[in-house]
Design a protein around this nucleic acid. Structure first.
Length: 110
DNA sequence: GTGGTGACGACAC
DNA sequence: GGTGTCGCCACCA
């Protein structure tokens, strides 16, 4: 946001995802002005596994609400984190994804 | 500068 | 809804 670094912007947005809500890689990329950089967003989130890096990456799923990054959290870690926030997860997919989906552009509406 | 890779997305079947 | 293909962008060797 405040910086021109794509990665930094991704982290900024992810940290602002409301509790109990989820968003997609594409939505973040679009908010950053590069709609087609969705792959880079996921690539950036790869940093979230670094110690001391507090990032709710478990709230970021793909366009279909699938926990595509589940493998990077290790086992059912991502699923548990989501369910802990009241988000139902079935078969690696977010139930009611359409309702729980949070668009980064809502930041402007705040 | 070039090529390969990835926690994606849109489209076709 | 699921699978395969192609396109996209940023990063690293």
């Amino acid at each position: 946001m405040t910086e021109d670094n794509f990665f930094n912007n991704v982290y900024e947005v992810v940290r602002r995802i409301p509790y109990g809500r989820v968003t997609s890689y594409g939505a973040i990329a679009a908010y950053l002005g590069v709609k087609s950089a969705s792959r880079s967003v996921g690539w950036a989130l790869n940093q979230s596994h670094v110690p001391g890096f507090d990032l709710p990456a478990h709230r970021v799923v793909n366009r279909h609400g699938i926990l595509s990054g589940k493998a990077h959290f290790g086992g059912e870690r991502m699923k548990e984190l989501l369910e802990n926030e009241g988000i139902e997860v079935f078969e690696d997919r977010v139930v009611r994804f359409k309702e729980l989906f949070w668009d980064p552009f809502e930041l402007e509406l705040d």
